[in-house]
Structures are given as C-alpha cells and as structure tokens.
Design a protein around this nucleic acid. Sequence first.
RNA 1: CGGGGAGUGGCGCAGUCUGGUAGCGCACCCGGCUGGGGGCCGGGCGGCCGCAGGUUCAAAUCCUGUCUCCCCGACCA
Length: 563
Amino acid sequence: MTRLSSYLLPTEREAPADAEAISHKLMVRAGLIRQVGSGLWSWLPAGWRVHQRVVQIVREEMNAIGGQEMLMPVMHPAEPWRRTGRYEIDELFKLKDRRGAEMVLAMTHEEIVTGHVAAAVRSYRDLPKILYHFQVKERDEPRPRAGVLRTREFIMKDAYSFDRDLAGLEASYAKHIVAYDRMLDRCGLEWYRVESDVGMMGGLGADEYMAPCAAGENEVALAPGYAANVEVARAEAQAVALPAGRPAPEEVSTPGLTTVEAVAGALGVPEGALLKAYPVIRADGSMLLVLVRGDHRVNEIKLANALGAKFRPARPEEIAERLGPPGFIGPVGAEVPILVDDAIGMGGSASYITGANRPDAHLRGVEPGRDFAGERGDVRSVVAGDTVHGAAIRIEPAIEVGNIFKLGTRYSEPLGAGFLDEAGRSQLVLMGSYGFGPARAAAAAVEQFADEHGIAWPRNIAPFDVELVGLGKAGSEERELAERLYGELAAQGLDVLYDDRDAGPGEKFADAELLGCPARATVGRRTLVGGELEVQVRRGRESRSVPLEQAAERVAELWRSLP
RNA sequence: CGGGGAGUGGCGCAGUCUGGUAGCGCACCCGGCUGGGGGCCGGGCGGCCGCAGGUUCAAAUCCUGUCUCCCCGACCA
C-alpha cells in the first residue's frame, strides 16, 4: 500500500523563484523533480514513476516493430569519436582516466552500436536489425533551461536500424513512424510529426515529433496536410504591393536610414518592396550576397542546405571593403555572386528598392533580372500567413520529444560497418537513428494539460491511476473504509496513492490536484452516511458519485474512459 | 560567448544604499481544538547571511577576488 504519509512527495506551495516554464514550476512544486545543478535533475519517486511509465510505453512499441533492447555504456574511449569526426563537438564532455587515456561521455551511441555491428555483422543474412537502449546521455549544453526540458544529462531511448540497402532503410524508417505515432498517442500527448533538417552531416531524410506548448524551443509551421519545422518549412509568400517599374534604377537620398523599416517608412512603401542584402562568407573565403524580400528573414539552415556548405555572416569591415557601407548595400553593380530568394519576383513592371552601395543612398526601380542577376533558391524563413496548397500556415512553439533520421552511411563508413551481399561484394550498412526523450514527453504532458490547480496527467503516464483521499482521523471508521477501498481498487488493477496524512481536507485536495492523478476518490464521513463514493476527474475537475458496493469496479471503468 | 539578475533557516522573501544583538510568512517539532477546500490557539527547534581575502573597535551590509544559479540572446551534428 502506497501511503502518502511515508512517501517522499515534497510538495511546495510556491514555485521556485527562478522558474519560468509551467512544467518546471509544477514538476518541482508537485514533488516530482529536484535540481542538483545547472541542467542536472533528480527524479523523486513519483516523478520517476511517470518517467518509467513513458519508458515502458516506448519499450513496448519498440519491441512491437522488432527492436532488440540492449545496453551500452555512458563512458567511451575517445577513439571511435575521433574516427567519426565528432570528438571536436563542443557539447561533448571529455575526460581522462587515471592512466591519461582520453575518454568521452556519450551524447548518443552511434559510434558504439555501429562498432558492435561492424564486428558482428558479416553477411546480408545478418540484416536487417533494429537495436535500442534507454541510456543516460551527457551533453554540455551552452544553456540548460526550463526544468527537465533542456538538461545536460538525460535518459534517451535511442534506436539504430541497420539495413542492406535503401529499400531496407526506408522500411525500417516506416516501422519507426508507426511505433512513434503509437507511442506519442499512448502517452496522451498532442503532437505533430514534422519535416526536419537533416543537418550539415548529411542524411537522407528526417522527421521530428513535436509536442506543441508554450515553453517549446522549436517552431513548427502548420497547414492542413502540412507540418514542418520552420528551420526547413517552405511556403508561398504573401503578395506584396510593389511600386511601378522605371526605365532604370534611380538613386534616392536616404541619409542615416540603415534599416528596412526606416527606408520603407521614409519612402512610403511596404517593407516587402525592399530587398534585404545579407552578405555571407563561404568556407573558401569568397563572399556571397543573399537577397531576400525586406519583410522576410534569411533562414540560415535553409541557406546552408542550399549552399551545401557552412558559411558565416560577413563582418562590417568585409562588407565595407567589398560592397559598400553596411546598411546601404545592394545587388546593383555588386561584384560578388548573388543568391536571390524565390519569393522575390523576377522581371515584370514591378520593382524593388535596394541599397545603392553608397553612403546615405538607395536605388528605386530595381528590377531583378534586368538590373542584376543571380542564382535562385528558397532561403527565407516562412512567416505566418504564407500559404501551402492555398491554405495559410500558422506557426506554433513546440517541444521536440523525438526525432527519426535516415543516416545512410554516415557512421558505417568511418567505422567500417560492412557486409557481403549475395554476389560476395562488400557493401556498407545503411543506418537510421531514432531518438525519444521520456523526460521531455513527461514535461510536454505537464505543459499541455496543466491548469491553475496543477498537473492533469494523461491516464497512461500518471504517477498513480487514482489518488485516494482519506479524511478524518487515523483509525476512524472512514479511514478503515478508505483502507478497504484501497485493496478493492488495487484488485481492479489500479495503482493507488493513499493520502493517509494527518492533514486537513483542503491541503489534501490541493496536493492531489497539484500532483494530477487522473482520478481522485474521497472517503469521509459523507461517504459513510450517503453510501456513495465521490470521484473527481482531474481534467475538468468534475465530480461524480458511485455506489459504495460497486465502487472499485465503477472507478476502474471510469478510469478506463479517461484520456 | 554577449546582455541582465540573484545567492540570508526546507520554500518564498525583507534587511545591504546610511556598518552596531539576523528578521517575516509558510513549512517543521510539542500540546490542544477542528475535520469536505491550504482551519484555529499556545509553546518551540532551526541560519559561520555562497566561499576566500581585505578595510574597521565592529561587516549580511564597504572593497577585492572567486564559485554557483536563473532569465534573454547566440549556440544546440
């Protein structure tokens, strides 16, 4: 019997002063987690039950697609990380053992799992495989934040698929989509699967599982039938009213007007009638002038993907040297290559305003194609109101709770994970990696369903199914009834937390609602007198009464009907 | 890494400017009352004021250094 009087559940009336996010405040207040250091958290018993419930759901769904659970260490020799080129990552914790050997603390486990596969797999007959584990990840995050939403140490379910060819990888990936869709549903979360960036390291495709909530660090662009991380989202830009064209560009004086807003205001045109010039320096040291509409922003991830290489913004002195005074630069006459965003209309009678590459001057009547030339590309960030298939998109903040990624040979190649096919030819294994963060899933559930009274857990990941509140003094008749009901509820398969503390009813109710078990049953004098048990559904806080003689069955039935 | 803020009892805070016996609310302990929404009365325990140096007759308070934490941004393979 889980008695609250002897359970470690230190609830707080007030949230920590430094907490911002709802999940941070409530998980601390409800006694689920406690901070140890920046980005380092302990899970107290009730919190750990939530985490374990998420873990079990994930485990069941991974097993259902043929995943094989294993366990790999957190501390690794540095060597395989050097081989894959990941030793240089700043977020990687590095240390030395007593002999001076270089070690790392794992951020993920591609190096190790691929090493095992490289050693064990010889033949196409050994493939495909899906291997996974739940293990601690260590990441030296520049800025941990918001309770368990972004931490330096956390448990991740990471899975890896190994296939002989692209069709096999696609099949493994499809299985993970099924598993992930199901685990997110079973966790009771609102979620989106969104297209995501494959990153600079390459990859054949990736999706992220996003749980929308205010504390989310990511943004997703959504329209009917469309969902993408704004890092990669593509959409039709909204039209903008452009000034009429002119026979040739014409200089206008714009003293001191270095921002799009200032120039548009002074000339009485919408910001979208300007072209924003964003000079970047590519890996080879050359400059590229990126142009986007004045009301748009350059999306550095899309730009990096379009260039297929890293770049950095140009420094003011580089801009001054190669183009003109920062704030007044533009494409006309520029002696550097130009990349023109797709949202900029080419040709036609309409025209844009651009910097003149001279102090305190802009040009109007600039027509792309006529007055300058450049390659085209989609390198801007979408904004709310852009359209996809004719429907306007909206942008929402969300927490990334899972991601799935077609790695290809990114790791099998440097680590030598190959096999022999039927023809006896040596081939590289095609890999996929699939992450899921139970702590983030739990925090997302708190974010999505909390109200002013506290947490309202989805049924499948609540710390307990039912909180049984025993009123009256210890040893009283109503307490005896409560203890009997505990046994009956447990016999129905319910996990029950029994509040047997010597505390007032108000405190018990407040704590129960803070902790947020999906149902609360109250046993007091009224229960004895009326012969009915009061049950409150946490989400919505509505109460109902069930006859005492069938109380356990009725509560179990009610519990099964909850979200 | 840039900007801002904070370390005083378990939690939330005041006191610091203007140096002079370390305070408040909640929590906790004991006794009693109450017993369906954080209830009431009485009595208690608990703090080297983040740490280290310095100034001073005297430092939570002034000076120097240092550590830690939070928020915003950058970053996040």
